[in-house]
Simulated scan of single mutants.
Amino acid sequence: MLLVKPQVLPRNEKGFTLIESLIVLSIFLLIISLSSLLLRTQSIQLEKQLFFTQLKADLLYAQQHAITSQKLVSVNFVIPEKFYYIRKQNGEILIKREYSDKITVSEGSQKLFFRYHSNGNISSFGSIYFYIDGERYQMTFQLGRGRFYVIKS
């Protein structure tokens, strides 16, 4: 049988003082708070990019569906409930998407309800405005083939 002798710590070794612990804790909290501020701006930027990418894809899908089915396709923004939907001529909903409370939609020269015709043309042209985090974006629908673009205004 092997006997192990217990180790005895020298009397002069002590733990950290309260001040040392508080300094390390405050540095840690400072680093965490700074990183959360930096991540907030990234999340807002990502949310903008995701919203416009999804909206553009949905509008192009509505236009392509109108062309392939040879029927009207309607697009409608419902402002109080924060969503938009794309509907076939027979009333069947193709897409219904909710968007963030941080995004505000308002009509400009373009109404918030428009249609794509069977040839892909849009029923009306003009601009819709989107407000995200204090910035204004303008989505402009051009006369003709239903083309559109988004700019920061």
Rank of each mutant, 00 (worst) to 15 (best):
L2H: 09
L3I: 13
K5L: 14
K5E: 12
K5R: 14
V8I: 15
L9V: 13
P10H: 09
N12V: 12
E13T: 10
K14A: 11
G15L: 04
S21N: 03
L22R: 02
V24A: 15
S26I: 01
S26A: 14
S26N: 05
S26R: 01
F28H: 00
L29P: 01
L29N: 06
I31W: 06
I31R: 02
I32S: 11
S33V: 05
S35H: 13
S36L: 15
L37N: 07
L37H: 07
L39V: 04
R40Y: 08
T41E: 15
T41A: 06
Q42L: 09
S43Y: 11
S43N: 09
L55V: 04
K56V: 08
A57C: 00
L59R: 05
L60N: 13
A62M: 01
Q64N: 15
H65N: 06
A66L: 09
T68N: 10
T68K: 10
S69T: 14
S69W: 01
Q70K: 13
Q70T: 05
Q70Y: 08
F77E: 04
I79Q: 10
E81H: 10
F83C: 01
F83W: 06
Y85M: 08
K88W: 03
N90L: 08
G91H: 03
G91L: 04
E92L: 09
E92W: 07
I93Q: 04
L94P: 00
I95H: 06
K96S: 14
R97P: 02
E98I: 07
E107C: 03
G108F: 09
G108R: 08
L112C: 01
R115Y: 12
R115K: 14
H117C: 03
S118P: 05
I122L: 08
I122V: 15
S123P: 02
G126F: 01
I128L: 04
I132N: 03
D133N: 15
D133F: 08
R145L: 13
R145E: 13
R145N: 15
Y149Q: 10
K152I: 10
S153P: 15
